[in-house]
Amino acid sequence: MKTLYFDCFSGVSGDMVIGALIDAGADPVKLVEELKKLNIEDEYELTWKKVVKNGITSTKFDVLLKNHRHEHEHTHDHAHTHTHNHDHEHAHTHTHDHDHEHAHTHTHDHDHGHTHTHEHTHTHDHDHEHGHEHVHTHDHHHHDHRSYKDIVQLLEEADFSEQVKDTALRIFKKIGEAEGLIHGVPLERVHFHEVGAVDSIIDIIGTAILIHQLEIEAIKSSPIPVGTGKIRIDHGLYPVPAPATLEILKGVPIEHSEVRFELTTPTGAAIVAVLAEEFGSIPSMKVRSIGYGAGTKTFKDHPNVVRVIIGE
C-alpha cells in the first residue's frame, strides 16, 4: 500500500506541504495546468525553486498574487504581515505587502545562498483591474473576501475529479468550522480573509491534486509542533498556537516546542488533521521517495522544512 508520512518536526503550512510533495516527485507543471480549472489564474502566479535551509536542500513553493494596485500583494497562508526579501535568480527583489487577518510583522530573509535556483514562473498575463473584462461563469469576489460558500461554489464548478474535490472540500470545511466556532458565526457565513485568500485556496486544492497525482493510499503523520509565545493579530496579542489552529488540531497529538514562533498555520493544520489517519513515529515501510518543503522563516538551530516520506 502506497503510504505517505508527514514528518512535521518544524510544524507545517500549506506552502511547505506543496513544496515537499513537488520535492518528492509530484509534477508541478501538471499542478499549474490542473489549477487552471478554477478560472482564477489571472489572480496569481506560481513559483517553485530549490533553496537550502540549514544545510537541507528543499523546495520553496510560492503563490505570488497579481494585483495591479500594488506591485505584488502576496498573501501568506498564515495571515500575517511580512516583509520578504526574496533573492530571485533574476535579481529583482520583490517586497510583498501582505494584507492579513493576523497582521503581525516579521522580516524574513531567505537563505537561497548558493543553490542552483530553478525558478519556473508561469505567468498568465491578463491585464486586470477589478471590474475585469473577461467575465467568468461564476461571480468571484476579490480574493480577500471569498466566503466559505464562494469557495465551495468555485470547487463545485471546476472540472476536478471527485476525489480531488472531496479532499479539498473536507480541508476547507475543517478550517471554516474552526473559524466559525471561534468568531461565533455559522459555517455558511464564515468570511475568510485568510482561507479566502488565493494562496490558501491554491495550497489546499493543490495539495489535494498532488496527493491524488502521487496515488497515495494511506497517510500518517508525526505529532504536530505548534510553537510557543505570542503573536499580534488584528484582535490584539494572542497566544501561539492561534485559536483557529488549536481548534483544527483537536484530536491530533500536538507537541511542545521551544521555538517562539507560529510553527503551524491553520491551513497546514487542516491539511494534516483531515488527511492523516494516524499519528506517531515513522511507520515500517520500504521508502521510495523523500521530499523537503521549505517554510519562509529560517531558524537558528533547526531547518524550517516539512519532510514527506513515501513508501510501500
Rank of each mutant, 00 (worst) to 15 (best):
E188S: 15
H193Q: 08
E194I: 00
I204Q: 04
I204C: 06
G176I: 11
G180C: 12
F172H: 05
E179M: 03
G180S: 11
G176P: 07
A197D: 05
P186C: 10
V185P: 09
H191D: 04
I204G: 04
H191G: 03
G176Q: 09
K173S: 07
G176V: 04
S200C: 14
E179Y: 02
G176E: 09
K174F: 04
D203M: 05
D203T: 11
I175S: 13
G196A: 11
D203Q: 06
H193W: 04
A197C: 09
V195D: 00
G184Q: 05
D203P: 03
I204A: 07
K174P: 02
G180Q: 11
E177P: 05
E188D: 15
V190K: 08
L181T: 12
V198W: 01
K173F: 05
P186G: 13
I202K: 00
D203G: 03
S200I: 00
K174Y: 04
E179V: 11
D203E: 10
I204S: 06
D199A: 12
G196V: 05
G196S: 14
I201P: 03
H191N: 12
E177S: 09
D203Y: 11
H183V: 10
P186I: 10
L181S: 13
E194A: 11
I201F: 07
A178Y: 07
F172G: 10
R189I: 00
G180T: 10
G196P: 07
G176Y: 05
K174C: 08
A197R: 01
D199I: 01
V190T: 15
I182W: 02
H183K: 14
K173C: 08
H191C: 05
F172D: 10
E188Y: 10
E177K: 13
G180K: 10
S200N: 14
L187G: 06
G184R: 02
E188T: 14
S200Y: 00
K173P: 02
G176M: 12
G180W: 11
L187Y: 08
L181H: 12
L187E: 07
G196F: 01
V198G: 04
V190A: 10
V185S: 13
H191Q: 13
D203C: 02
E177T: 12
E179P: 06
G180L: 13
K173R: 15
I201R: 04
I202Y: 01
I201W: 01
L187K: 07
R189Y: 07
D199F: 03
H183P: 10
P186M: 08
D203I: 09
V190E: 06
E194F: 02
V198C: 02
F192N: 03
I202G: 01
G184K: 06
V185M: 14
F192D: 04
K173A: 02
E188H: 14
R189M: 09
G176L: 12
D199K: 02
F192W: 10
L187F: 11
V185E: 14
G184W: 02
E188P: 05
A178Q: 06
H191F: 09
I182A: 09
I201N: 09
F172P: 11
H193N: 08
V185Y: 04
I201A: 12
G180I: 13
D199N: 13
G196D: 02
V198T: 15
V190H: 05
S200A: 15
I201Q: 05
I202Q: 01
S200V: 01
E177R: 14
G196R: 01
D199M: 07
A197P: 09
I204F: 06
P186L: 07
E194G: 11
